[in-house]
Amino acid sequence: MGKANPTILKWARETSGLSLEEAARKLSLGGKSISGAEALQAFEAGEKSPTRRQLMNMAKQYHRPFITFFLPAPPKSASMGEDFRRLPDAKREEHEGNVNALVRDIYIRQSLVKDALIDSEEDETVEFIGMGRAMPSIDEACRAIRDYFEIDIEVYRRKPNAHDAFNYLRALVEEKGIYVLLIGDLGSHHSSISTDAFRGFALSDPIAPFVVINQNDSKPAWCFTLLHEVAHLWLGKTGISAQTHEHLVERYCNDVASHLLITLDEVRQLFSDAQRSDEAFVSALQREASSLNISASLVAYRLFRSHLIDQGRWEQTSEELRELWLNSKSIRRSENSGSSGNFYNTQRHRAGGALIGLVRRSLHDGVLTETKAGRVLGVSPGNVAEMVGL
């Protein structure tokens, strides 16, 4: 196979978001006579060649196929669509390597799904994609989305918790041919991606549209993000979203998702009830929002957008709510430290019923191999049969 291309080695490291020092540490390079960074720099300068084992480790740490290192030039990067985020440079640099790797993974999964649909002659066009390109009023958008998916907000609110409410919305969306996945890392918690850098991703393909939600977010936030990304699909906009509202399209999709979940009159009433409560405002807001299976952050955003609170109070409230969520998440993690749950149930929920069903049919009909099926589901080939129930 020859020697690895030094230019590719440097490109792969840089696009994974790692400095020389960080990459050398992850690769366990260096020794008494030379530092890890110096050893890696020698590889990238073509002064020395890494061993096969070292290249295999690079492939793992850089999230690139092994064969990539032997290409004559860096491949063209797959577009992540529009970047609807507005991130500080430091935050972008911290997470961009993992985010780019995640987007590449989503595109690969979606491509395999699309091919499977075509080979199985299940490649029906999802007419919903791009129906709202003209960006009509928020009310018109809500009505169109609500009618298309037959969303009953009262049924949603009667669900016992936000997890079940999300499953209700997800089932309606997947029934229309849209795949909804929960992904928040690159295969392990060590590569976990913050919601500050990635909250959701919409891939607006007319045959195999994908919505990806950061599983690290709160469950009430999953519901909002699902509807937010669905709004992206309705606009025909492929792209990545985070917790920002400055971008015109992001603000539009935020408004659509929030109006689907709660009306302005309900926002006003909830605000009044929270203000009159004996509890601290943020705690009361959270309690009232939870009763509707929505996040208090969503309500705070609507209060701001409706001019019931100013931007300063909205930002302060959002920060306090985030601290409450992080604290409760830490407590739950400590309480559940001895139990990781059932692997297959967890992976099934992350993949979603629509994807599980397609993979099961495709395996049965010989359209997908177990290797490709594992790629689609994000598990090793040996776990595929058990995961899809074959």
Rank of each mutant, 00 (worst) to 15 (best):
residue 298 L to V: 03
residue 311 Q to S: 15
residue 313 R to P: 05
residue 348 R to F: 04
residue 334 S to Q: 08
residue 307 H to L: 08
residue 323 E to R: 15
residue 319 E to V: 02
residue 278 D to R: 13
residue 320 E to Q: 10
residue 285 L to E: 04
residue 285 L to G: 01
residue 310 D to P: 02
residue 287 R to M: 05
residue 331 I to H: 14
residue 292 L to R: 13
residue 283 S to D: 14
residue 323 E to F: 10
residue 347 Q to Y: 06
residue 289 A to W: 07
residue 313 R to C: 04
residue 338 G to N: 15
residue 295 S to C: 06
residue 281 F to G: 05
residue 343 F to P: 04
residue 311 Q to L: 14
residue 334 S to A: 07
residue 321 L to Y: 07
residue 283 S to K: 15
residue 282 V to P: 07
residue 282 V to Q: 07
residue 297 S to E: 09
residue 298 L to S: 04
residue 344 Y to P: 00
residue 328 S to F: 07
residue 312 G to T: 14
residue 333 R to E: 06
residue 331 I to D: 12
residue 297 S to F: 03
residue 284 A to E: 03
residue 345 N to Q: 14
residue 279 E to L: 13
residue 325 W to A: 05
residue 352 G to N: 06
residue 327 N to L: 06
residue 298 L to M: 02
residue 322 R to T: 10
residue 339 S to M: 15
residue 295 S to F: 03
residue 295 S to R: 12
residue 349 H to N: 10
residue 278 D to K: 14
residue 345 N to A: 10
residue 309 I to S: 12
residue 315 E to A: 10
residue 278 D to N: 13
residue 352 G to L: 05
residue 284 A to D: 04
residue 349 H to T: 03
residue 305 R to K: 13
residue 282 V to T: 08
residue 332 R to Q: 13
residue 276 R to K: 12
residue 326 L to A: 02
residue 278 D to Q: 12
residue 277 S to Q: 10
residue 351 A to N: 02
residue 319 E to W: 13
residue 281 F to W: 09
residue 331 I to C: 11
residue 351 A to Y: 01
residue 307 H to V: 03
residue 349 H to P: 03
residue 329 K to H: 05
residue 344 Y to F: 10
residue 289 A to I: 03
residue 284 A to G: 04
residue 330 S to K: 15
residue 305 R to A: 07
residue 315 E to S: 09
residue 311 Q to K: 14
residue 307 H to E: 11
residue 331 I to G: 12
residue 324 L to N: 11
residue 335 E to A: 03
residue 293 N to I: 00
residue 294 I to K: 00
residue 300 A to F: 06
residue 346 T to V: 04
residue 310 D to Q: 09
residue 283 S to Y: 15
residue 283 S to E: 14
residue 310 D to N: 10
residue 312 G to P: 12
residue 303 L to A: 02
residue 340 S to D: 15
residue 334 S to F: 02
residue 337 S to H: 09
